[in-house]
Nucleic acid binder design. Structure first.
Lengths: 249, 249
DNA sequence: CGGTCTGTTGAAGGATTTCAACACTCGTGG
DNA sequence: CCACGAGTGTTGAAATCCTTCAACAGACCG
C-alpha cells in the first residue's frame, strides 16, 4: 500500500513568464488555429489580439455574461465551470496552452455558458468575436483549422456522452485518468504525473459522480497499484491496467 | 387516464420524392452550409455531390468503417447508432433534412464512430472528404457556415453532458422531449406530435437510462397529462409543464 | 387472426448518493 | 519553527434511484 506524500507538483508561478511581443508571436504560431501561417500573416493577426495576465484563482469571465470575446490560453491552465440549478459548481473542462474558449459566434444575444477561471497563473490572449470573424473570412485556412479543432472537441464530447450513458463510474474514471494523462501527464519519479491541481471533486465532476464515490474508486486504484495520489495530485503508475479496467468484463 | 390509439404518424413513403437536378439544387441551398450562396456558385458545388436513396431501415455506413464521406440529409430521417463494448446498440442522434453526418476531416486513418441508418425512406447527398476540403478552402463563407453549425452541435453536446451529470432521469427525459418537440414537433389534434418513430428504447438511449425506467417516466407524464403517447409515437400536450419538470425542486 | 415487436408494471437486487464522522495536508500566523 | 485551522480526502452505514429480471398486455404486420 503506497502512502501519500507532499505534492510533487511544480509551483506554477515559479517559472517567470513575460509576454513580450516576440513571445506572443511565437506562442500564437503554436496555437493550432495558426499553424502553417507565414510570419507576415501572423503579425497582423497578432495585432488583433490583446494579452492579459491572470493570477491563480482569478475569474476570466462569468457564466451568463454577454459573450463578446474569443480567448486562447497562451500560458497556464484554465478551468471551465458550470452551475447546477441549485447553485452547485461543476467543473466541465480543464484547458492547457493552445486551447480556445469563450464564444466563437458572431455576437448576438449569446451569453457565456460557463465561468472561466485561471487555475494557475495564466496568460490569455483575447479577440472580439467580430474581429475574429473577419480573420476567418480573410484567411480560409484559419477557418478550416478552427473547424478541425472544433470537430475534434465535438467528437470527444460525443464519446464522453457515450461513456456517461453506458459505463460504470469506475470505468469512466479510469478513462478520464487516461485522457488527462495524455493531456497533462509528465514523466516523474512517481510515474506519469498529471501536472495540474486535481481534486477528488474535480474528478467527480468530470465523471458525473459524487466526491465520495470518486474517492472510493481512487482508493481502490491506489490499492491495486494503478495510481499514486495525494492531496490535489495524481500520478498514473500503470496505464495499461487502467485501459484494462475500461474494457474489462 | 388517456388511452393509447393507433399511430397518428404520417407514413413516410407516401410522399413521393424525386431527386431531380432542380430539386437537388433547391435542397442544397436550404442546407445551412450553403445559405447566402449564389446559384452560379451552388451549381458547381452541386456537381461535387452525389445523391443516393435509402429505404427505411437500410444502413448508410457502419461504425468502424473507413470514414471517407461527408453526407447531408436531403429528405427523410437518419438515425446514428453506437455499439457498447457488449455489443448493445445505442441510438445517439436523430437527424432531419439539412443536417450533416459522416466525417468532416481530411481522410487519414479515421473510421466512422457510429453506424448511420435511414430511419425513414431517405435521400442523402454525399461528397468525399477531400473534395469537401477543397470547397472549404475555395469558399471561406462555407467554412464559416460549417463552423457555426459544428459549434452549435458542440454546445448542445456540452449541455447534454451537463444534464447527464447533474439531472435525474425524469428531468433528462422531460428536457429531451422538449428538444425533440422543437426539432420534430408538428401541430396535430393530439398536441405537438413528434413526426418520427420514437420508441421507449430510443428515449432511454438518449437519456442514458433503461427502457423500463423510460417507460415508467413516460407513463407518469401521461398520467399527469403532459404527453399523449402510443407505440412508437409521442405527442406533447403541455410543454410548459415539461419545462417545470426540468427546473423544479 | 396468430406472431412478433413494443410497452407496462411489479419486485428484487445493485450501484451510487447522501449523511456523518474522522484523518490528513498545507498554508498561515503566532 | 510549530501549531492551528480550513480545506481536502477517506470510510462506514443508511437511504435512494435505477437496473434487471420476469410476466403480461397492447399494437402492428402479414
Amino acid at each position: 500500500m503506497s502512502q501519500k506524500r507532499t505534492t510533487p507538483l511544480e509551483a506554477p508561478s515559479i517559472r517567470k513568464h513575460q509576454c513580450t511581443v516576440d513571445i506572443r508571436l511565437e506562442k500564437l504560431g503554436m496555437v493550432p488555429f495558426f499553424w502553417n501561417l507565414d510570419r507576415e500573416i501572423l503579425q497582423p493577426i497578432n495585432n488583433e489580439f490583446s494579452a492579459s495576465h491572470f493570477h491563480a484563482g482569478q475569474p476570466i469571465y462569468y457564466e451568463g455574461e454577454k459573450a463578446t470575446m474569443l480567448r486562447v490560453v497562451v500560458y497556464g491552465a484554465v478551468k471551465l465551470i458550470r452551475q447546477t440549478e441549485e447553485g452547485k459548481e461543476i467543473m466541465v473542462d480543464m484547458l492547457k496552452p493552445g486551447e480556445y474558449f469563450g464564444n466563437l459566434n458572431e455576437l448576438g444575444d449569446d451569453t457565456y455558458s460557463e465561468t472561466a477561471t485561471a487555475q494557475s497563473d495564466a496568460c490569455i490572449m483575447s479577440i472580439g468575436n467580430r474581429e475574429f470573424r473577419s480573420l476567418l473570412n480573410m484567411y480560409p485556412s484559419i477557418a478550416v483549422a478552427v473547424l478541425d479543432v472544433t470537430t475534434k472537441k465535438l467528437n470527444s464530447a460525443r464519446q464522453q456522452i457515450h461513456h456517461l450513458t453506458t459505463l460504470s463510474v469506475k470505468k469512466r474514471i479510469a478513462h478520464i485518468l487516461k485522457e488527462l494523462c495524455g493531456k497533462f501527464g509528465e514523466e516523474s519519479k512517481v510515474g506519469m504525473l498529471l501536472q495540474l491541481p486535481l481534486s477528488r471533486k474535480d474528478l467527480a465532476d468530470l465523471a458525473g459522480t459524487s466526491t465520495e464515490t470518486a474517492s472510493r474508486v481512487m482508493s481502490r486504484f491506489q490499492q491495486d497499484g494503478l495510481i499514486t495520489s495525494g492531496r490535489q495530485w495524481v500520478a498514473i503508475t500503470d496505464i495499461n491496467a487502467l485501459s484494462e479496467v475500461v474494457s474489462s468484463n
